[in-house]
Design a protein around this nucleic acid. Structure first.
Length: 609
RNA sequence: GCGGGUGUAGCUCAAUUGGAUAGAGCAUCGGUCUACGAAACCGAAGGUUGCAGGUUCGAAUCCUGCCACCCGCGCCA
């Protein structure tokens, strides 16, 4: 029986509902849930209340009838009606053992999607000549977690880094560096970042934008930003515009210099990605420049389909359900990032053949992506070559804040770069691991400095990733290394520690019987087993909702259940050889679930720490 | 002004998407180690789920109106 208890129950109650209420109710949700308390059994069916309302019957009576006909005798003990009409379900112990047996495979019972598809994940989003900051951290590790989860279920995932490597901002930096006569071959990213800010400051003057912003009653931030800008910038922008044109036309010197900017930026990026253990390299780069020859085609298509209009010299796309239009061409003929995003949608659906595109970009860009997706739909670009409708979705996420609860940006301090934060996290992880290793009783005692450093890095990085992925993505959070790298409580290291303990006990057992019978006797054994049996359901739920924190919360449950089990059920010193083998196998399975789950979050699980 | 998000224990967050007595972790207090790994476990205390109404067997969750904070709102990306 390959299905999980949950699915078995869902199928059985689904059929029972049809048997009692008729074929109209085929496909209605049987509302099987994990019980909230042990005294309510293992699972519960909450369908009868809702169905009773629909059919004008009494919920408890309906529940009793469902119990009469439902076919779960082979897996469950006697069912009982409780409260307003809950059906409490307690599984047979033998069912649990059988189910554990069937999940004890390399896949750990996680079943692949029936219809795998190509998924493009737009993540990371580094800009040329700018330092990575914590915003990139979120996009990158969230995107990587999505990618790992979907890959686990069989999808063909393409991580794409929509590098900001084109357009006026890049031309401005390039122009500035060249007029200053800077040697581009010896630049650091720090130099580039400073030049970027200089260039922006020099070029930002937008009286027209300011009046528009005021008349449109834009937010105070935007207006203040525009007011800061001064005159005299028009010249610089015009010169940068010429630089851009020359670059576009393939001017050899310019192209060479442009490439060195990209190279400096992406070298630093690769270093950070490497530290993070994110499965992404320069080969995942598909920057804005990739789409530069397709922008005209975007505009032509919208014009030819009558989907846009001229407004004040610019070209805009209107939508039926809102006032706000989408600008796809400026009055000076230039294109905008919306144009690039539209070109990217077109490539991803029509050429890459994606069935799903996920944009992992902070939630301030929600409106932008809504507009882009709607425009792409109007354009008819939401179909892939096989004619299937492509799902475009934007997963926004909250800001990372500093201790002052203001967005933590490079602007607010030179040391807020991603690289520096990661180094700090790693050094804290290492310090803790090294200090533990000094204890002669510690399993890490006697390991080499190199080995301890590697473990410490996994701990430090794992702490940062866990802190980010363990809560709801929409929330802002304060980047507080003290809390993240704390080694008590709801942290990455707690999970890694639970995993390492398991590896340790299995290692010390010396003999391991992979075919040992599961003997589920103690409540702690039962609890741990039931939790582990939910793994398949949890992965699918996390994949469907794109909520990694579900996996994080689940892993915490596994770790807590294991720690409780380990406290009350002697493994190596179990009373009988059979029980010892059973508990070892249970522990090993728990360890593999933890490793698998941490892996889906991109967190390493050292065998010893 | 319009739109979006958030508001849950002193602090940081959950709540299987409308289910039973709202759960964890920090911090506080009290118990467990000459150790199958104490980075752990067990227990105590801590709540008018921003406020006020409404919907129903049942609401943190859905509807209405307020309040607070954050974000966005055509020629930047």
């Amino acid at each position: 029986m390959p299905t999980t208890p949950y699915q078995h129950l869902a199928d059985a109650f689904g059929s029972a509902i049809v048997a009692v209420l008729g074929p109209d109710f085929a496909g209605s949700d049987p509302v099987i849930r994990v019980s909230t308390k042990p005294e309510f059994g293992d699972y519960q069916c909450n369908a009868s209340m809702g169905l009773a309302k629909q059919t004008g019957r009494k919920p408890r009576e309906l529940a009793a009838e469902l119990i009469e006909v439902v076919d779960v005798a082979d897996i469950a003990e006697q069912l009982e009606v409780a409260g307003p009409g809950f059906i409490n379900i307690t599984l047979k112990t033998s069912t649990i053992a059988t189910a554990l047996e069937s999940m004890d495979t390399p896949a750990l019972g996680v079943k692949p999607n029936e219809h795998p598809e190509i998924v493009v994940i737009d993540m990371c989003g580094v800009n040329v000549a700018k330092q990575m900051h914590v915003g990139h951290l979120r996009s990158t590790i969230i995107g990587d977690a999505f990618a790992r989860i979907l890959t686990r279920l069989g999808d063909d995932v393409h991580r794409e880094n929509h590098l900001g490597d084109w357009g006026l901002p890049v031309a401005l930096v390039l122009h500035l560096l060249r007029t200053r006569g800077v040697d581009l071959t010896t630049l650091t990213l720090g130099d580039l970042d400073a030049a970027y800010r200089d260039a922006q400051a020099l070029a930002k003057a937008d009286q027209k934008g300011l009046t528009a912003a005021i008349s449109k009653q834009s937010g105070p931030h935007r207006i203040a930003e525009l007011e800061d800008q001064n005159t005299g910038a028009a010249d610089i922008r015009s010169e940068a515009g010429q630089t851009l044109v020359a670059l576009q036309q393939g001017d050899e010197d310019l192209v060479r210099d442009w490439n060195s900017l990209i190279s400096v930026t992406t070298d630093a990026m690769s270093e950070a990605l490497n530290l993070l253990g994110v499965q992404m390299t320069k080969s995942n780069n598909r920057g804005e420049s990739f789409y530069r020859d397709r922008l005209r085609g975007v505009l032509d298509w919208f014009e030819s389909q009558g989907l846009c209009r001229k407004d004040d010299g610019a070209v805009v796309v209107d939508f039926d359900d809102r006032e706000r239009p989408l600008l796809i061409q400026k009055s000076d003929g230039g294109f905008l990032y919306a144009t690039t995003d539209l070109a990217a949608v077109r490539v991803r659906t029509e050429e890459t053949g994606a069935g799903r595109c996920i944009y992992v970009v902070d939630s301030r860009q929600r409106d932008h992506f809504k507009d882009v997706f709607d425009a792409a739909t109007l354009a008819g670009w939401c179909k892939n070559p096989s004619g299937k409708h492509v799902v475009l979705s934007h997963t926004g996420f909250g800001s990372v804040l500093g201790p002052d609860r203001r967005p933590l940006k490079t602007r607010s301090g030179e040391n807020a770069t991603l690289a520096s934060l990661l180094k700090e996290a790693i050094s804290r992880g290492r310090a803790e691991v090294h200090s533990r290793a000094e204890d002669p009783n510690a399993p890490t005692h006697g390991l080499s400095q190199v080995e301890l450093d590697a473990i410490g890095q996994a701990v430090g990085i794992g702490a940062v990733k866990y802190a980010d992925l363990a809560n709801d993505l929409v929330r802002d959070y304060v980047f507080d290394l003290d809390r993240m790298v704390a080694f008590e409580g709801d942290t990455g290291p707690y999970l890694q520690y639970a995993h390492a303990r398991i590896r340790s006990v299995v290692r010390r057992a010396e003999s391991f019987n992979p075919d040992a019978a599961f003997l589920i006797e103690q409540p702690a054994e039962r609890g741990l087993s039931l939790t582990m049996l939910r793994w398949n359901d949890v992965v699918h739920a996390a994949a469907e909702s794109l909520e990694p924190h579900r996996i994080a919360a689940y892993l915490r449950e596994v770790a807590e259940d294991f720690n409780g089990f380990y406290q009350t059920c002697p493994v190596l010193k179990a009373p009988t050889p059979e029980l010892r083998e059973s508990r070892l196998r249970l522990a090993d399975l728990a360890g593999r679930v933890l490793e698998d789950g941490l892996g889906l979050l991109g967190i390493d699980a050292p065998a010893c720490m």
